[in-house]
Design a protein around this nucleic acid. Structure first.
Length: 265
DNA sequence: ATGACTAATAGCATTAGA
C-alpha cells in the first residue's frame, strides 16, 4: 500500500500536473491539500477517467482537502468517517475551515489534514494554529484508542527540526518553526505516532516545499512541512519513503512536492 | 526594511500562502 500526501495549491490550476503524477506513480491513496475549490467544482470525473475515486471537503478560494483511492486496489473507495474537527476559524468567524477529512480505506484509517499556517505571529492566526493542533491531537487520541491502523498525513505547516530547513535563520521568525509549533508536533510523536520520513532519514536534509520566490527551487532552498504520521501497526510495515522532487521542477508545478510512504501488505 | 511568486476572486487590485 502506497500512501501519498500532496499540497497541490489549487486543483483547477494543477489538474494536468496532478493527473500526470497519479498516472505515473499510482499511489494507492492520495491525500490532497489546498484544493481551493468549492464542493460543487471538484473535478471528480477527471479522476474517475484514470481509475481513482474521491471524497472531498472544499470551500471557496482557500484550503480544502481530498482523499483519492486507486479503484483497482480499493474497490470500495474511501469510506468517509468524519469531516472537520469542529473548531471555528480565527477572528469573529464561527465558520469552520475545510482542513480535515477522515476515511477508511481497505481497513486503514486515512486522515488528510491541512494544518493552519499560523502567520503572522503573534496574533489570532497563530493562536488558531496552536488550538487546531491540540484539537487534532485530541482526535488522534480517539483514533488511537480505537486501535485501528491509521495514517495521519498532510501539510502540517511545521518544520520539526533545524535540519528540516535549508537555513534556520531564514525561517526563525516564521510560524512554521516556532517553539510552540514544534512542541505541539512533538507531542504527537511523544504520543507514539511515527514520522515516516524522519524515521528512515534521521539525518534530515529532505525538503517537501520550495518557495516560488527568490529562486528557491533552483537554489534548493526548501524545508520539510508535509508529513506522514503512522500508528504503530503501520510503522511496523513501513518499507520506504520518498519525495517526488522531480515533479516540483515541472512546468506549472505546485510549490510543494508529493511525499509518499510504502507499507508492506 | 522591503519585495520577490502564484492562485483565486472579483476586476483591472487584494488576500493568502509559507
Amino acid at each position: 500500500m502506497k500512501i501519498a500526501t500532496y499540497n497541490i495549491n489549487g486543483i483547477k490550476a494543477r489538474l494536468p500536473r496532478l493527473k500526470e503524477w497519479l498516472v505515473e506513480t499510482r499511489p494507492t491513496v492520495a491525500c490532497l491539500q489546498e484544493i481551493k475549490s468549492q464542493d460543487e467544482g471538484f473535478p471528480a470525473s477527471e479522476f474517475e477517467e484514470i481509475g481513482y475515486s474521491a471524497i472531498w471537503h472544499g470551500q471557496k478560494s482557500f484550503n480544502g482537502v481530498a482523499i483519492l483511492t486507486d479503484n483497482e486496489a480499493c474497490p470500495d473507495g474511501p469510506q468517509e468517517i468524519q469531516r472537520g474537527l469542529g473548531i471555528a476559524g480565527p477572528g469573529d468567524s464561527t465558520e469552520e475551515q475545510a482542513r480535515y477529512l477522515e476515511a477508511d480505506v481497505n481497513g486503514v484509517r486515512i486522515v488528510c489534514i491541512y494544518l493552519p499556517n499560523g502567520n503572522p505571529l503573534p496574533g489570532p492566526k497563530f493562536d488558531y494554529k496552536i488550538a487546531w493542533m491540540e484539537k487534532l491531537r485530541g482526535r488522534m487520541g480517539q483514533i488511537w484508542a480505537e486501535e485501528v491502523p491509521c495514517a495521519v498525513v498532510g501539510d502540517y505547516n511545521v518544520i520539526p527540526e533545524d535540519d528540516d530547513v535549508w537555513a534556520t535563520k531564514a525561517m526563525a521568525s516564521d510560524a512554521l518553526m516556532q517553539p510552540e509549533s514544534r512542541a505541539a508536533y512533538g507531542r504527537l510523536l511523544a504520543d507514539g505516532w511515527t514520522d515516516a520520513v524522519r524515521s528512515l532519514n534521521p539525518r534530515g536534509g529532505l525538503w517537501t516545499y520550495w518557495d516560488y520566490q527568490r529562486g528557491a527551487w533552483q537554489r534548493d532552498h526548501g524545508f520539510r512541512i508535509d508529513h506522514l504520521l503512522l500508528s504503530p501497526e503501520l510503522a511496523d510495515r513501513l518499507d520506504s519513503v520518498g519525495v517526488d522532487r522531480e515533479h516540483r521542477g515541472r512546468e506549472k508545478a505546485s510549490d510543494h512536492a508529493p511525499v509518499c510512504c510504502h507499507l508492506a501488505d
